[in-house]
Design a protein around this nucleic acid. Sequence first.
DNA 1: TTGTAAGCGTTATCAT
DNA 2: ATGATAACGCTTACAA
Lengths: 353, 353
Amino acid sequence: MSDSVAPTAVTPARKPRSNAGRTTIRQVANHVGVSAITISRYFKQPDSVSEELRAQIAAAVAELGYVPNQVAGGLASASSRIVGMVIPNISGPIFANTIQSFSDILNQNGYQLMLASSYFSPGQEENAVRSFLGWSPAALVLTSYFHTEATEKMIAQAGIPVVETWDLQTDRAPIQVGFHHQDVGRMAANYLIDKGYQRIAFVTNSIAGDFSALERRDGYREVMQQHQRESRAYTPTAQPPLEAGEEAFKALTNCENPADAIIFANDNLACGALLAAQRAGIKIPTQCAIVGFGDYAIADKLYPSLTTIRPPATEIGEVAARRILELVGALPEPENAPEHFHLQCELVERESS
Amino acid sequence: MSDSVAPTAVTPARKPRSNAGRTTIRQVANHVGVSAITISRYFKQPDSVSEELRAQIAAAVAELGYVPNQVAGGLASASSRIVGMVIPNISGPIFANTIQSFSDILNQNGYQLMLASSYFSPGQEENAVRSFLGWSPAALVLTSYFHTEATEKMIAQAGIPVVETWDLQTDRAPIQVGFHHQDVGRMAANYLIDKGYQRIAFVTNSIAGDFSALERRDGYREVMQQHQRESRAYTPTAQPPLEAGEEAFKALTNCENPADAIIFANDNLACGALLAAQRAGIKIPTQCAIVGFGDYAIADKLYPSLTTIRPPATEIGEVAARRILELVGALPEPENAPEHFHLQCELVERESS
DNA sequence: TTGTAAGCGTTATCAT
DNA sequence: ATGATAACGCTTACAA
């Protein structure tokens, strides 16, 4: 030893970062007297940690109030427990149930929902997908199948499960969870024919971009043709759904050979027709039956209440969530999982038919 | 040089991780011929990078298809561009607009929404908050002010902005964005008194846990007292809202001294009353006026359409999002930002009054 | 304006 | 069943 002060390894001015005093996995490990990786295993594969340690770790976690840092975990494992979902809109009458059930099932399994709206714009959808990808999500859920080229490229290269919902496209690569809109038109037409209605018409949406409404119309036409009935489709010019429904109802009942049953492209249109009938003193369903689509919240609150076709909104969210969780290993993989999940719409018979 | 192979620093068997070939900031940096931090700055503080480099970097980003890894960024900076929101439910008639506007404004500013439902359960809310905290969110939004002790502790220690929405509690620490339910009752009562109605009643919700409905009733009572009118509150026993509304309507109109105007705790109850009146042939509003709360989608589709009080749902989401973005530095901080944002409900006059 | 180096908290890999 | 170590991709702190 020299007489001068021992130089003891010149520490070159450390650079501590903030951290807000949050408990880390290492503090838990020290507290228990094991290494950090054991704590990690305790959370990921509890079975690989001895029962004795498990109890001690549980106690330490509770005492220190440790919350695993998902961000750090995500970086280390190059994948996060986030699932991104792009939905046309949250506040419309249709998609809320899908979001609700999807989110609930993810949460129950330790995954989180990241949500964005596209407002039916492929460009906005692209932005949302790009933002999501920055989070290395475990999976992606889209609604609709028409994407920009860039979106197609991103989902093809992402290397994660991608699910397309609502509109079933059996020829596309991503997993499909939904139904065929043509089936809706078929179901409504068959139902009315079976009920004995003779002159059955279809009212499409006045909003031009609503292609799914046209598919429902096509299903209706097909059935009418099968039964050798004349099909009659009306497209309103008024834009607000209530007015459009009223316009269509008047046009189809106030004419030669008036319709005795009308299928509307959605419940809002049907609602407009119902109100118009009420004002005009036309008896529903005696003079004319009405069937809608969507089973919006209004459907059972109208007078007469509205017969409508309920899309499997909640089911779509459930099935999509479960399939994703299976694919990422959070739920056991079943033997023969299909690529496409064809769900059923349900005809809800009420007073208007 | 010796004749043997140069030992060139014994590399001790590297441990590369996967990565799925994703472009990193370093690849972009190499492509441009600068260091990684410059690319980072290009995204965070573009002004601190020379214009020349900016153009080159933009080109490289586009060519390589670089998407910043938010997870890595979040770890390095100990905070992520995620905002967690706990909402009682997504698919109910009330909250969807708040989620929609909140999410849109976050997205426009590069932040993402992480969503979970509590179903009005403080325990579920606690779980959601705990899960969110694992992501080091930039902020948290809660609905309602009754939390578990654990939740209170977490939000107090989180060190991030916390916003409580819908129900304004001026005595609480978190930022408040919402309105007073008593004001709703006051507004409805004043409106009907001004319109000349004499015997004004209030119908509360049959669901016991709906405390906000009781606050609206209290506001109604206060105004009635001020005007020296007798207040009459009715609580239905039927649970389904339509039946409850019908029950209340019958009870309040089919009696001595019947009400000539009724305020309902929500639009579903009011809707039940409207349908009951229609069936009974009671003229609305001639014999009895009806006012609801919520401005649900049904309100303008009923016949007669429903006068109701619209809560500032969209505004709540907007104001909460903007304030959060200000607090995290994504938007410029205004001079005198209040702690509490008192928003206004709006009376929407329609045919039922 | 740009660069260097260390460090964020976890998990993959290899070792015991 | 448990541990040591490096690596994940970025940003902070400090330097030039």
